[in-house]
Design a protein around this nucleic acid. Structure first.
Lengths: 125, 125
DNA sequence: CGTCTGTCTTGACGTTCGTCGAATCAGAGA
DNA sequence: TCTCTGATTCGACGAACGTCAAGACAGACG
């Protein structure tokens, strides 16, 4: 059981977490914070934020590493490392097809994070 | 000019940034990523995520450090350090009134982050 | 003025992070 | 099979992080 385990995400809060109420509505429980914080942490690096966006906004729904890498002044291994971080945070999925590896966003998690951050639009002065 | 400078936020992307399109719609520009990533990074620690939530969900709109600290198994200085991180990320404001210091959320930034993460609700299978 | 309480700052510690070069793995094709 | 290309893993380095104890600062109250 080690076929391509390295390419699979480690966390799958996608299914488990009951899509918690907004952060500004009730205090986030410690356990929920422990699960969700790593996702924010993964987005807390400019390179990963751009990678995430490039993947999520790709027209075909997926992005090839070969298209991602040249967009940065960083070496291949470094980009690969950041992609692994996004993978382990459950934000993206990876699939190898032939020579190339394609990354795909997991919209469920993005929605969950966005929901946590959401605030009533007309609640402020 | 050093009255309580330490209590003021350092970044104020609140006003400057034109509340960018969703991350999944178009690639986030490098400059935008550089500005926004620190905010996600600040939320990338379980303690800070809970602090942020406790502050943002406080009934009176603000939370006293004296109420925040006892909710964690951490020393005062450590909590203070995390609050400073949230402050420097532009996520909260601090104000001293007499003996106590009160923290208050900045909804504009939360909305901005939530907007960046937003995805069309019915775009997936 | 002195003291007490609450909060922040400083200095230090071990750990984790971001980056690279070198080595390795996975397929494609001659 | 051998080689070539694309992507990941490994090992190492300096920088940044999370935490604490000790000290400094700000107000309140005698």
């Amino acid at each position: 059981m080690s076929k391509q385990a390295g390419l699979l995400p480690v966390i799958d809060l996608t299914a488990d977490t009951p899509c918690c109420p907004p952060l500004a509505q009730s205090p986030v429980p410690a356990q929920t914070a422990a699960v969700l914080a790593p996702a924010f942490k993964a987005l807390g690096d400019p390179v990963r934020l751009r990678l995430m966006s490039m993947i999520a906004s790709a027209k075909s729904g997926e992005a090839c590493v070969c298209d991602l890498t040249p967009a940065f002044d960083l070496t291949g291994p470094t980009i690969s490392h950041h992609l692994k971080t996004l993978r382990e945070a459950g934000l993206v999925d990876a699939e190898r097809r032939g020579t190339w590896v394609y990354y795909r966003a997991r919209p469920a998690i993005l929605r969950q994070l966005a929901g946590l951050l959401s605030v009533e639009p007309a609640a402020v002065a």
